[in-house]
């Protein structure tokens, strides 16, 4: 019974299974490293912001809405529209025709404007402003004869408070220099904004509103409250 017993197999201190696990972990870490190196976005940087298209340059236009007769003269534009006696006869004021509702009937040559001065029709008469004895001039309510490029006193002869505001600078726009020593300024006149035949300024599209970083939808337009005015 003294036969040497065979050496018992020592258990592997580093079992094969553990080796696989460690190799797998190492591979996983290496893979993550490669991923982070390849995509810098994974380092916790903020996501790309949605693009903001630049605003339409039409909203940056500083030109007045309309051009006055004086502007047209200065720009050497075609003034044939103001040459009344090309069609009309001198010393013979053109007659004005009315429909059954006493609304003025515009001849087709003048169909490019509509008569909408004020909320009633008493103002929609040609010779309230035009001079019937000399069509290339205007006539104020006090009888003054005014050139087309000097229409402000004509408007002011009816719209007194607004005229005073305009004189003082509270109505209408002044562009250029606030400091007369630094440069010229230009005060827009009535017809730079208002069409004499339909002075109410039409509505227009608004420029885009502010964006927030989160893409929010603007709230639905609520029903306007009943106005007391």
């Amino acid at each position: 019974m003294d036969t040497p017993s065979p050496i018992p197999p020592t258990p592997d201190p580093f079992p094969r299974r553990t080796g696989y696990v460690l190799a797998g972990l190492s591979l996983g870490f290496a893979g993550l490293l490669a991923l982070f190196a390849a995509d810098p976005g994974l380092w916790g940087r903020p996501p790309a912001r949605p693009a903001v298209p630049p605003v339409d340059v039409k909203f940056l236009d500083t030109a007045p809405w309309r051009r006055s007769y004086a502007d047209l003269v200065a720009a050497k534009e075609d003034l044939s529209d103001f040459d009344c006696y090309a069609c009309h006869e001198k010393n013979k004021p053109p007659p004005i025709r009315y429909d059954a509702n006493h609304r003025i009937i515009l001849p087709k040559e003048h169909s490019n404007f509509s008569m909408a001065h004020g909320s009633h029709d008493r103002n929609n008469q040609c010779y309230n402003c035009h001079n019937e004895s000399n069509l290339v001039t205007l006539q104020a309510r006090d009888g003054r004869e005014l050139k087309f490029d000097n229409s402000v006193p004509l408007c002011g002869s009816c719209h007194g408070p607004t005229y005073r505001d305009w004189e003082g600078g509270a109505h209408g726009r002044t562009s250029g220099h606030w400091d007369a020593k630094s440069g010229p300024s230009r005060r827009l006149v009535c017809v730079n904004c208002h069409d004499p035949h339909q002075p109410r300024i039409p509505g227009r599209a608004a420029a885009p509103g502010p964006r927030s970083l989160r893409e929010e939808t603007p709230p639905a337009v609520p029903v306007p409250p009943t106005s007391t005015r």
Partner: peptide, 9 residues
């Protein structure tokens, strides 16, 4: 409201 979006103002 400052985010109003109107067809016409």
């Amino acid at each position: 409201e400052h985010r109003y979006a109107a067809e016409q103002v």
